[in-house]
């Protein structure tokens, strides 16, 4: 208790948080451009990384990015290997049973991507009898299972979006469903240009696709309030818009 008081006093006196250990920010260990991806020198780059920098500066938090496997990212949070999830994770009721979410920090529609010469449409009729790939335990998988699984030949699940994209390029899939921005980034790359195109966005279903993307924290972790304040602050002072302009020609916050 004494320590806490001391820390609070020190924080007040010096105007900075006296955090003993830096906060570990869990990022899915796989490239998810343009939000999070490792560059050749092993640093994490992308919109979310820049955004995190702004948030941690705003909230005076000491943050380190900690790559974690996507499929174990929630257990990693609850078991204490990481402190915050920042991995383009959609806020869903199902996940909110296990972890707490911050306010959303971006929200973009979901898209279906297909091979260049394909005539598939992004609905159940178009995907009947096709092989559809999605990243495992994402909102897009839930959507695919509900709308497309009954008619598709097979729904294949992947640990990473990158693997699903690769398998579409390799002709092993007929279509991939995922976040429109992540897919657009792939379509803009050389590999994406060579193989694939957008079939359009899917019909929205907020109950499944969630209410945007937020930070995930352990239930009851007081850091949540700091994050929410910081999101509001960077939205208000123009930092958010400046970072977004570096990556996208439009606002990704959603309405």
């Amino acid at each position: 208790m004494k320590k806490l008081v001391l820390a609070a006093v020190a924080a007040l006196a010096f105007g900075t948080a006296v955090a003993a250990a830096p906060l570990k920010i869990g990022v899915a260990a796989e490239p998810y451009p343009p939000f999070t991806s490792p560059d050749a020198s092993g640093n994490w780059v992308g919109w979310e990384v820049d955004f995190l920098g702004a948030i941690c500066k705003q909230a005076a938090l000491d943050c380190v990015i900690t790559p974690t496997a996507w499929d174990g990212i929630i257990p990693a949070l609850t078991s204490g290997q990481i402190d915050i999830i920042m991995s383009s994770m959609s806020i869903t009721a199902e996940r909110a049973k296990t972890i707490d979410f911050s306010d959303k920090y971006y929200n973009t529609p979901a898209m279906v991507m297909v091979a260049k010469d394909s005539t598939i449409t992004p609905d159940a009729a178009g995907l009947t009898g096709k092989i559809v790939g999605v990243q495992v335990s994402t909102t897009h998988e839930a959507y695919t299972q509900k709308y497309f699984a009954p008619v598709a030949q097979e729904v294949k699940t992947y640990q990473t979006q990158d693997e699903a994209n690769q398998d579409l390029a390799a002709g092993r899939l007929d279509a991939v469903m995922a976040d429109s921005i992540a897919l657009q980034a792939f379509l803009d790359s050389d590999a994406g240009k060579a193989c694939c195109k957008s079939a359009g966005n899917v019909k929205s279903d907020p109950a499944i696709l969630g209410a945007g993307v937020g930070f995930g924290v352990r239930k009851g972790d007081p850091v949540l309030a700091k994050l929410n304040d910081a999101i509001k602050a960077v939205r208000a002072d123009g930092t958010y818009a400046a970072i977004t302009a570096k990556y996208f020609p439009f606002d990704i916050y959603g309405e």
């Binding site: 260990a29 490239p31 496997a69 174990g72 690769q166």
Partner: peptide
């Protein structure tokens, strides 16, 4: 590599997934 740890196999996977 399967639990996301960046040892040689994972590094290889990341490098080749990014550059093809």
């Amino acid at each position: 590599a399967v639990i996301g740890f960046s040892e040689l196999t994972k590094a290889t996977y990341q490098a080749s997934a990014t550059t093809k």
